[in-house]
């Protein structure tokens, strides 16, 4: 039935039929997203509001008093420990992100140029760490990086070193293990961005006399910027939430904010403080996503590019 045959549209005082149907159409569209919206509100929005509310409660002598107190945020700002650990978390995340991007870019470029078979193999190798339990993965790294692990044994047997190198229970061990598992989150967006580049543009630059590195820097890299920004965002956000790997491979000496949150909640039963630190972590991640969105727009590749 067309809108102009609608019975109500025949009434002289009715709204113009096209506008009425457009309004109904909009409502229908909202109706379709409503179940998901309600689900999100219940499973995400309400807990988030509760987390925010809990962060303003007071914890003293093992007892939590609900209310609006700024104690936890004052503590974060003034105790000298929480902000130091937050900075440590950010610097560790930036390090992991930088190493991850440096490793991911060549892999993505290789995959772009590879045939379907090699691409499939590369994809499987990349994704395979995600198919293993995090504990198993970390213990495997202990066997490789440990004092009597594979690397140290080989180096000692080869006469290259006389005493084992400290490859784990420090930042190095954490970065190696985390980059290993997070690499696909960097490779895949970069690979998608590289695939979207018309090779004719690179060929045109080369035909005009640009050296390969100049083509890469001035043509390929700018056109892959959206993928790089997405990879940066994903790696950084994932790294900000690190808990288990720093515990196992950092020997607890590499302290992250999630470790402090867990400790406050599980060992001190101080959920107000744990909530406040969670809010800080969440706010920092939201800020990174916002900056990333702005950068994404700035470096967006036009559709006709």
């Amino acid at each position: 039935m067309s809108p102009d045959r609608h019975p109500r549209a025949e009434a002289p005082d009715a709204a113009p039929p096209v506008r009425a149907w457009a309004r109904i159409g909009r409502l229908r569209a909202w109706g379709l997203v409503l179940p998901a919206g309600v689900l999100y509100a219940v499973t995400f929005g309400i807990p988030l509001a509760m987390l925010l509310g809990a962060s303003f409660a007071r914890f003293q002598g093992g007892v939590t008093t609900p209310g609006f107190f700024l104690d936890n945020y004052v503590k974060i700002a003034t105790d000298g420990v929480t902000l130091a650990v937050f900075r440590n978390t950010v610097s560790l995340s930036l390090l992991i992100t930088a190493v991850g991007l440096a490793c991911a870019l060549p892999v993505a470029m290789l995959m772009r140029r590879a045939g379907p078979g090699l691409r499939l193999v590369a994809m499987f190798v990349l994704v395979s760490p995600l198919l293993t339990s995090i504990i198993v993965r970390n213990v495997a790294w202990m066997l490789i990086l440990g004092r009597s692990g594979m690397i140290n044994s080989w180096l000692i047997d080869a006469g290259l070193i006389s005493a084992p190198l400290p490859l784990m229970y420090n930042r190095l061990g954490v970065v190696i293990a985390v980059v290993h598992v997070y690499l696909p989150f960097a490779v895949l967006p970069i690979y998608a961005a590289l695939r979207a580049i018309d090779p004719a543009r690179e060929r045109a630059a080369a035909s005009l006399g640009a050296a390969p590195w100049r083509v890469f820097v001035h043509v390929t890299l700018p056109l892959a910027a959206p993928g790089l920004i997405a990879a940066f965002t994903l790696l950084f956000i994932l790294s900000m939430g690190l808990y288990l790997t720093p515990v196992i491979l950092g020997g607890n000496f590499v302290v992250t904010l999630p470790m402090m949150i867990t400790d406050a909640a599980r060992n001190q039963y101080n959920w107000p403080y744990a909530s406040a630190m969670s809010v800080l972590l969440l706010a920092s991640i939201v800020a990174v996503v916002a900056v990333s969105a702005v950068l994404g727009r700035l470096f967006a590749v036009p559709r006709d590019a």
Binding site: V81, N252, A264, Q268, N270
Partner: peptide, 15 residues
Amino acid sequence: DETPQWNDMWTAWKA
């Protein structure tokens, strides 16, 4: 009662 203070000192020490 003292675990929060101990934890702060512990975290500062190890970090």
